[in-house]
Amino acid sequence: MSVLRLAVLALVFGLLAGCGDDGPSVSGAGDPSAAAPSSPQPSSVAKPSSGASTPSAAVVPDVLKFTATTVDGKPFDGARLAAKPVVLWFWAPWCPKCRAQADATADVASKYQGKVHVVGVAGLDKTGAMRDFVTEQEVGGFPHLADEAGAIWKRFGITSQSTYVVLDAQGNKSFSGTLVNGDGLADHVAKVVG
């Protein structure tokens, strides 16, 4: 077994172990139209984006220079998130804590629509299960990325599912951690909206 495969297995087992932890992550509103770049890229690649499709030629922070594919198979360019605060919700379809966060996340996406980008980043399972989760939990009002290989999770230093990352409009991390049932997410978002 190669070193790469062992590393991937270690990462997966580490992420699986995190579902039962209610504490903060160690790694210390949605705009459905944000999922419309030029050509699809597999989410496992998380290639740097050229930034060409950014709204109003906004300066794109390095953290948002990635491309992926949504759970619906549409291309997604992270550069389109530039110039507004961003909520990234890292979840897994089988995680009960993630299911418990769905309502609060959807509420924030609706309340802050047009002011904040909310994006789900699904991992640790297959795309079909991710799509089912979005339908069952009724969180289709904002884009969800299918990150089967964990490239975006790795990019943001995520080590367990049910983790939120809140970025301000300049791409600076304002919050990273787990919020039981999504409680407090709206407060974190209000801080970056101003």
Rank of each mutant, 00 (worst) to 15 (best):
S56L: 12
A79Q: 10
I152H: 01
P75I: 00
V180T: 11
R131E: 14
Q137I: 07
W89Y: 05
R5E: 14
G128F: 06
M130L: 06
S2A: 07
K74I: 09
N172Y: 07
G114Q: 08
D168Y: 02
R131N: 10
V45G: 08
T178I: 12
Q113V: 07
G177P: 00
D21Y: 10
V165Y: 01
K191E: 13
L145R: 02
D107E: 14
T67F: 08
A57Q: 14
P93R: 03
V87G: 02
E136N: 09
P40S: 09
F90R: 07
A186Q: 11
V12I: 15
E138K: 13
P143S: 04
P61E: 04
G141P: 03
R131V: 11
T67C: 09
V119D: 04
R155K: 11
R5L: 14
F175T: 02
G18L: 08
K191S: 11
P40Q: 08
A34C: 03
D183R: 08
A34E: 02
A102R: 00
G20E: 13
D31M: 03
A34K: 00
N181T: 08
F66M: 08
K65G: 10
S110P: 00
I158A: 01
G28F: 02
A190L: 02
G182I: 04
G128Q: 13
G177L: 01
V87R: 02
V12F: 06
A122L: 06
A146C: 08
T54R: 15
A68C: 13
V60I: 11
E148C: 06
V193L: 04
D125H: 10
F13W: 12
G114F: 09
F76W: 05
V45C: 12
D103A: 15
L4D: 07
G114Y: 10
T127M: 11
T135F: 09
S50T: 15
T67P: 07
M1C: 10
P75N: 05
D77S: 11
D31C: 01
G171W: 00
D183G: 08
V71W: 01
D77K: 05
G150D: 01
F175D: 07
T127Q: 13
G28M: 02
S174I: 06
A149L: 09
